[in-house]
Design a protein around this nucleic acid. Structure first.
Lengths: 205, 205
DNA sequence: CCGGGTCCTGGACACTTGTCAAGATTTTCC
DNA sequence: GGAAAATCTTGACAAGTGTCCAGGACCCGG
């Protein structure tokens, strides 16, 4: 019987969840390397100490594995982003911290971000991924909105745009910087920094 | 011998080019419907009056066909976008025309735009598509910059951002609107309109 | 030590994929 | 009209895909 539906002792459940996480992390490495279109279950298993059959022991099918990966990616992503807005007391300080933080996460894991945009595009075709992708998108939007709201408070003003519009613009800057960074542009990260720093004042008062 | 490398009369070359265009258009329909990851040459041929073998008569391999499609997509895309900035004499008129125009093109061919973002994501993994995608991106950036510069002139000011940053923000708004539009959001188009109209003033003076 | 449940392997399956080539068909041109 | 060149079809090939399953290996309580 599939372990996900069997009843077992708590330690057993934990062990199963640990292995699922381990396999999903290996899958994320492969996906980040090759992209969704070129990643097969056997290739994923090669980045693993196990055989390809095991993937179907812990995941019902490929979409369940990918969905699990997307969900897991969210925690990684959110953890990286958090602590970006912490402890800034001036508007300019927050603006530079925002740009520096986004540039740092981009420089730290460009392949994971590349995968994110790949999977987000896939979610437009495969509705199985739509819900999870939308949830991650929503949490990223919330995160960016906290920055915008914090900036407005420090500047003594109010935001003049919606949360979704603010996220869309930051995301556009980030995505373009990722493209240029992957293409070898030396100024991509700096442009992202200044782009974000200059964007925040445009969104308030 | 492959028709692309043979010497022939002009009418022959035109006929070959016409058929290549015809096949590429059918491929674009299929790609827009299924996405890059799920589109095969046989599926493309099914959207055609011909058999799957013919694709290899007119295109060396799959990437050459996709590349041709991307190039062809550019002309379609640019043609749709052009005439967006034409004949507006006031800043507010241009701003609303910009938002209305982008919303109209989104509503007119959402599946083609979905394909564009899919292929742009693919270009991060498959370097064969990188060059053509970057070229299209550049022409779209030029187009948006003409709008921003025109707006600044009508308003008697100067743009306060780089062309690439301006394009990134508009593209972010457009991409988010596409996602929400495809997900069934009723306000996506209106949000895109107001988002663009409000963005232009933020980018000048 | 052993029996039963858990974990994992390896191979098989039905199918799809890109690619190719041999031959049929159509067009072109003298 | 007939040969030559083009266009197109058909079937095949090898490789790769997701999925499934029979069975081996392992572990742990009795």
């Amino acid at each position: 019987m599939s372990p996900s539906t069997s009843t077992r002792a708590r330690s057993g459940v934990d062990k199963v969840e640990d292995r699922r996480r381990e396999l999903a992390d290996a899958a994320l490495v492969t996906l980040a390397d090759l992209g969704y279109a070129r990643t097969s279950l056997r290739t994923i298993a090669e980045n693993t100490a196990f055989s390809h059959g095991l993937l179907h022991y812990y995941f019902a099918d490929k979409t369940e594995l990918i969905t699990y990966c997307v969900r897991r990616f969210k925690t990684t992503c959110a953890a990286q982003y958090e602590g970006l807005v912490a402890g800034e007391s001036t508007p300019d300080g927050l603006a530079t911290a925002c740009g520096d933080g986004l540039a740092a996460t981009l420089a730290d894991a460009p392949l994971l971000h590349r995968l994110w945009y790949d999977l987000r595009a896939q979610s437009m075709f495969e509705q199985a991924y739509r819900e999870d992708v939308a949830e991650i998108d929503g949490s990223l939007q919330d995160m960016m909105w906290r920055v915008v709201r914090g900036y407005a408070e420090l500047a003594g003003t109010e935001p003049t745009c919606t949360p979704s519009a603010a996220y869309a613009m930051f995301d556009g800057l980030f995505q373009q910087a990722l493209h240029r960074h992957l293409a070898g542009s030396a100024t991509a990260l700096d442009d992202l920094r200044t782009g974000c720093r200059e964007l925040l004042p445009r969104l308030v008062s």
